[in-house]
């Protein structure tokens, strides 16, 4: 059996390794990675759960002819779930396209947001946390307000050592008894109504109870005084 030249053996080895490598690394056909939701799947490229939130990845480019409610007009509409993601909470410029934006103050559109402790008590202005123009949406990937870095970029400016959980404090909490709280902060809503009922219940019981007891004691005393008078005469 004739021995093949060394150069041929090396060539065969290289060819098989490269073929195997190519087979492993060959990209999957485009159709098999079809994605229809706002959650990006990177399963084919990374070893992880493969699920990413919008704020963890670069934003998709703006698509022309696609209508985004309140942001841009177009021919094609997003699905309701996709439109939610393209809402103002996820934009690089959260106020993009608003008419006469330059002539408005923050509070002319967000009066509710000025009734919290940070504004009312610490006398903070909106821009001390939300930054200058353009104000990025709080969920935009590059925004200092993005939950992945808010504690370090915003909270820690005053609250030294703030961690991500600390950043979970709801600065602009809805009025605790309101309908907004029932939808967005049910525990706050429940706490408020529980404590209100406790207050009203306690007072509704004890105020009449004490007052009537006092009144009754007054009558009982009058009777005693009358009896004493009669016995002395």
């Amino acid at each position: 059996m004739a021995r093949s030249p060394v150069i041929l053996r090396i060539f065969a080895m290289l060819a098989s390794v490269m073929t195997a490598g190519a087979l492993i690394l060959w990209p999957l056909p485009a159709g098999s990675d079809e994605v229809a939701s706002a959650i990006r799947r990177y399963k084919s490229q990374e070893v992880s759960t493969g699920y990413y939130e919008e704020f963890e990845v670069l934003p998709r480019r703006n698509r022309p002819f696609v209508e985004v409610t309140g942001v841009q007009g177009g021919i094609i509409e997003y699905s309701p779930s996709a439109a939610k993601v393209r809402s103002r909470t996820h934009l690089a410029d959260s106020h993009a396209g608003l008419d006469f934006y330059e002539f408005k103050t923050c509070q002319s559109c967000h009066p509710e947001q000025a009734e919290d402790l940070h504004t009312q008590r610490a006398n903070l202005t909106c821009r001390q946390c939300h930054g200058g123009e353009p104000i990025a949406s709080i969920q935009h990937y590059n925004s200092p307000m993005n939950p992945i870095r808010k504690h370090a970029y915003v909270c820690a400016k005053c609250h030294e050592g703030a961690n991500a959980s600390f950043g979970g404090y709801i600065v602009h909490a809805p009025a605790p008894g309101s309908d907004a709280a029932r939808k967005n902060f049910p525990l706050l809503y429940a706490t408020y109504w529980f404590m209100t009922l406790l207050l009203v219940g306690t007072l509704a019981f004890f105020i009449p109870h004490s007052f009537l007891t006092g009144l009754r004691e007054l009558f009982a005393r009058e009777k005693e005084v009358e009896n004493e008078d009669e016995s002395t005469h």
């Binding site: 609250h159 050592g161 703030a162 961690n163 959980s165 600390f166 950043g167 979970g168 404090y169 709801i170 909490a173 902060f185 525990l187 706050l188 706490t191």
Partner: peptide
């Protein structure tokens, strides 16, 4: 508040 938020979520401070 910082020690609290290490043990509980930050919104517990609202409550």
């Amino acid at each position: 508040p910082l020690a609290t938020s290490r043990l509980l979520p930050g919104w517990s401070l609202n409550i």
